[in-house]
Structure formats: structure tokens, C-alpha cells
């Protein structure tokens, strides 16, 4: 399968987010791919936009089945979430469970006025009623396939498709 160019999708996301920016907007990326994207989006859209990252390890709904992720990273949100318009950024939207966890975590920082979801790729396969408002590309992937965002040494993004073992 020919995968789309991640850098082009990033440019498209930035173009689609730009009209939504207001005084109250902040970018929040979900570890790790979404955090990389949010950082690059901030560079394109303006340094004045507050940037945060979320690691949703403490909010996963499969904790009781698979335990704590062996590598958690601290979430960093240094601005006040209360009343903000949060643009939540992730690389791949699949079941919707990650987004549910991310929204739960966000609310433990405060009550946002609005959350907009922006994803590089929507691969289908939803198990939760979650939709992205801003989508770079839509791909129809099989459940056994695993799509992930990679970052090379030069900081350039690439999409990679793996067959599940």
C-alpha cells in the first residue's frame, strides 16, 4: 500500500487548524507521535500558542488487563486549561480509546471550553463514539495492521505500516 507523505499531511493539518486559532487556543499532543506533531504545528502556527503534552498511561482502559505501560512520561500542561479551546493532536486515530483517556486526563487539569481533535491519519476501526474534526488522510486498514509515525534523525516524519506479529 502506498502511504501518504507525513510531511505533506502535517502541512495540511496546519492549514486547517490556522482558521480556528483564537486568543484562547492551545495545542496538546498525545505521546509520542501526537506530541511530536503538536510541537511542529506550534512552530508553523506561532510560538505564542501554548503547547502541552499528555501521556495517557494513567488513564488507559486496559490497565487491569495489561498493567502499567513500562515507560511512562510525565504529562506537561503548564497553562490553565480552564475555559480554553484545546486542539488535541494525535498521529493515528483508531479505536478512539486513547482519545477518551486523553479527554479524561485533560479534565483533571480543568474544564476546557472546547476540544477539537486533529489527527494525521484516521484509519477507521472505531470502538468509541469519537470523531476528529481535522484529518490529514483517511486510510482503510485491517485490524492486524499497525500504522505508526516515525521521526528520522533529521526530524522528518514518515508513516510506517507493520503487520502485527
Amino acid at each position: 500500500m502506498q502511504l501518504p507523505d507525513a510531511e505533506q499531511l502535517l502541512a495540511k493539518l496546519a492549514d486547517n487548524i490556522r482558521p480556528l486559532l483564537g486568543e484562547n487556543t492551545a495545542l496538546v499532543g498525545i505521546h509520542s507521535g501526537g506530541a511530536w506533531l503538536a510541537e511542529r504545528l506550534q512552530a508553523r502556527l506561532g510560538d505564542h500558542i501554548p503547547l502541552g503534552t499528555l501521556d495517557i498511561s494513567f488513564y488507559r482502559d486496559d490497565f487491569s488487563r495489561i498493567g502499567l505501560h513500562p515507560q511512562t512520561r510525565p504529562s506537561h500542561i503548564s497553562f490553565d486549561v480552564e475555559g480554553r479551546h484545546i486542539i488535541l493532536v494525535d498521529d493515528v486515530l483508531y479505536t478512539g480509546r486513547t482519545i477518551r483517556g486523553a479527554m479524561n486526563e485533560l479534565f483533571d487539569y480543568g474544564r476546557p471550553a472546547k476540544i477539537t481533535l486533529a489527527v494525521l491519519v484516521d484509519r477507521g476501526g472505531r470502538e468509541m463514539p469519537v470523531e476528529a474534526q481535522i484529518v490529514g488522510a483517511r486510510l482503510a486498514l485491517q485490524p492486524g495492521e499497525n500504522l505508526e509515525l516515525a521521526r528520522d534523525d533529521a526530524g522528518q516524519f514518515h508513516l510506517k505500516l507493520h503487520e502485527a506479529a
Binding site: D55, F58, Y59, T72, R73, S75, V81, F107, Y109
Partner: peptide, 23 residues
Amino acid sequence: TQILDTAESFTGVSEREVKKVPL
């Protein structure tokens, strides 16, 4: 090391508005 790294992530939780996670 896993315990210490995980604790690093938890230090932020105690500084938030809601000092709780649902684990």
C-alpha cells in the same frame, strides 16, 4: 529504574487541579 521513571510521571499529578488518576 522503572519505578523511579514512573514516579517521575506521578510528581506532576500531585501539582494539578485534580490530584488523582483512576488507575
